[in-house]
Nucleic acid binder design. Structure first.
Length: 353
DNA sequence: CCGAGGATGAGCGTACCT
DNA sequence: AGGTACGCTCATCCTCGG
């Protein structure tokens, strides 16, 4: 499956298309909802992974898109979904698209030889203080501007760890609240959990503006709100995207293993939402019986969201890059199973009506 | 003081892209 | 040829209850 370059997805905000030329994609018949669904994972998975995932999701053409078109950090992801794509609208206001716009205070310290305009992908680990000190030493012991060798070393580390300039000859890792900002989360969304967990949860999450752009078409389909099944919810990137779009979530069933992440989502939910949040820990515990009875009770799910674990896909994993059969990434099959189940139940409900 | 359990930090290759 | 990647492991440090 070839990766598009540039990785712009089916379309971007501001693409000028004449109504006649609008890209109306043809979905395979069996892919058409209800329910709508939205699956996400890293774009640069091992070869063959996306072809397989697509084959489990009704052979829909995947949408590869880099969030650098929506914020100041790269985030190459692939989305397989059955949402309409011809009347998308971006979340406003736009997020800053360059480092300087996102963090203007760093401009005064930014050396001209650090040519980065955007951050690389936000990951789950942060640079250690020892590395920061080492960079500080390297800069302090060199001329101004530093030699080409020092520049290359420092710039390399800045790229690798997404460092910013916070003083004369001084770099620092992004703070958790700065990452929240880049990814489109409310300020202090993850506050209250320990720092390592904050970095991990944020590094694993959606970029809100990107997801919101895709979800924007749902606003007019469900003016009275929707019932959502959110698998692998993490800290609620998708939920926040829907909320920012002004889409009401009636029943939200959120499935997330991490207790810490569930608490973050619950806290946000209680502060912003009025309807029901049902939180469940394990996707494996979701049975077809439970789904059927829940669907009867609430009248069906309108949207099934899921970004299943990527850790056996990503190149950052030096130990267990086992692809779809990896211990965690194989949970994708539960997304597929649950989606099939929701789809089947929805259709049988419709037939009875 | 002592030990268990959580938090932190340093070091760790490769596949696949341009 | 160069650059990037929603990470993992293990040793060590820290914290807290007893």
């Amino acid at each position: 499956m070839p990766l598009p370059n540039p990785m712009v997805g089916f379309n971007l905000p501001g693409d000028r298309v004449k109504p006649m030329d609008r890209y109306i994609r043809l979905l395979p018949k069996q892919a058409i909802g209800p329910p709508f669904f939205y699956y996400e994972n890293v774009a640069l998975a091992p070869k063959g992974v996306w072809a397989t995932i697509s084959s489990f999701l009704y052979d829909i053409q995947p949408e590869f898109i880099d969030s650098k078109f929506f914020c100041a950090a790269a985030r190459k992801r692939c989305y397989i979904h059955n949402l309409p794509i011809d009347s998308r609208s971006p979340l406003l206001p736009f997020a800053p698209r360059t480092i300087h716009d996102a963090f203007p205070c760093t401009k005064q310290w930014w050396p001209s030889w650090d040519i980065r305009a955007r951050f690389n992908c936000i990951q789950t680990c942060r640079a250690s203080s020892a590395l920061i000190e080492h960079i500080l030493d390297a800069l302090a012991n060199s001329e101004d501007p530093p030699s080409a060798t020092v520049q290359k070393y420092v710039l390399g580390q800045c790229r690798k760890w997404n460092l910013v300039w916070v003083g004369r000859h001084r770099v620092a890792p992004l703070e958790p609240d700065e990452i929240e900002f880049l990814l489109g989360f409310p300020k202090d969304h993850t506050r209250g959990i320990n720092s390592t967990e904050r970095y991990r949860s944020l590094g694993n999450s959606f970029q809100v503006h990107t997801v919101a752009y895709h979800f924007s078409v749902l606003r007019e389909v469900f003016p009275n709100g929707m019932n959502v099944l959110s698998l692998f919810s993490e800290i609620g990137g998708a939920e926040i995207a829907l909320h920012k779009l002004g889409i009401r979530m009636k029943t939200m069933v959120s499935v997330e293993v991490s207790k810490v992440n569930r608490s973050v989502l619950k806290t946000w939910w209680d502060q912003t939402q009025t309807w029901t949040l049902i939180d469940i820990a394990d996707v494996k515990s979701i049975t077809s019986d439970w789904l059927e009875s829940t669907i009867k009770e609430i009248g069906g799910f309108d949207l099934v969201i899921g970004g299943s674990p990527c850790n056996n896909f990503t190149g950052s994993n030096r130990y267990h890059r086992g692809g779809l059969e990896g211990e965690h990434s194989s949970l994708f099959y539960h997304y597929s199973r649950i989606l099939d189940c929701v789809k089947y139940s929805s259709q049988s409900v419709m037939q009875r009506v």
